[in-house]
């Protein structure tokens, strides 16, 4: 071995040359796999199963006027309900009063541990059975709001609690020193700052809710109340073709991708106010 500063392996390549070679080999392997799959695929059959223009066209305009709209409504209702309840539970978790904390902790553990589908079933069928004569306001809308919102609230409560605790103690002290009471301090000073912290995780919660809204069909909905998944499924059955699934998938992405970029925009806007 000489004292040269460039380490050479037995192949005679420098470390940088070897790294470059390594990278090109990986590109080549990836390309070969793609070419192999493309050659093996029956494109005509694929297009016929997943991308039939006439099937896709037949889903309009109800895809937008009913299915997409209903998905947004179910999601929005459950999110607002879950956010309100989650905020309440977060405050209970931070309370100095023991029983409030115990109830809140029990709630979070219970509803995080249950599948959303089970909760939805319980709300939609269990509660009307247990309380004869009780009607959810808006019937299916009430059932969905509560059924999906209860689960969402458990997750959001944990997120909001963490956000509130992330606000420095000095903020609380400064507000109290100005004569603000505990409630005023919480709502005017702490929660606005906490929400800046929790907007990204809360938006993830919203995206999860968009997808959980596909469970709504178990409540027993009329055709006009179909959301995206149930709507797509009905076309899947009647057309015996998978194209509706692609259309539905793209519709979900049309909701969730803008949400993601909205988060980025909000984060950017809040960056200077932190």
């Amino acid at each position: 071995m000489t004292t040269t500063t460039v380490a050479r392996s037995s192949s005679g390549l420098t470390r940088r040359q070897r790294a470059r070679l390594n990278r090109w080999v990986q590109y080549a392997v990836g390309l070969l796999v793609i070419l192999f799959l493309a050659a093996k695929t029956d494109w005509a059959s694929m297009a016929d199963s997943f991308a039939r223009g006439d099937v896709a066209a037949s889903m309009f305009p109800r895809l937008l006027t009913e299915a997409l709209k209903n998905t947004l409504i179910y999601t929005g209702l459950a999110f607002v309900f879950g956010l309100g309840l989650g905020l309440l539970i977060a405050m209970m978790k931070l309370s100095s009063i023991g029983p409030y904390r115990w109830v809140a902790n029990g709630y979070v553990e219970l509803f995080r541990g249950l599948p959303a589908l089970v909760v939805l079933f319980m709300v939609a069928y269990g509660i009307p059975n247990a309380f004869p004569g009780f009607q959810f306001p808006g019937d299916i809308y009430g059932k969905v709001t509560v059924g999906l919102g209860l689960t969402a609230a458990a997750y959001m409560a944990e997120t909001i609690r963490a956000g509130i605790q992330a606000v420095p103690k000095g903020q609380w002290e400064a507000a109290r020193s100005l004569g603000m009471g505990p409630g005023r301090t919480m709502f005017s000073i702490i929660i606005p700052q906490a929400f800046r912290v929790v907007i990204p995780p809360l938006t993830n919660e919203l995206i999860l809710l968009v997808k959980d809204s596909s469970l709504v069909y178990v409540v027993g909905v009329s055709i006009a109340q179909y959301e995206l998944t149930k709507f797509g499924q009905s076309f899947l059955n009647s057309k015996a073709n998978a194209t509706p699934l692609i259309v539905v998938a793209l519709s979900y992405l049309a909701i969730t991708l803008p949400l993601s970029s909205l988060v980025r925009a909000l984060e950017k806007r809040f960056a200077k106010a932190r």
Partner: peptide, 27 residues
């Protein structure tokens, strides 16, 4: 009683003017 802290503790989500007015209006 005015209180001034080592770490300032201005409200970071509010502009300077709102930092000065929020307690005046709400308290």
């Amino acid at each position: 009683i005015g209180m001034v802290f080592q770490s300032f503790n201005l409200f970071p989500h509010l502009k300077v003017l709102d930092n000065l007015t929020i307690a005046q209006t709400k308290v």
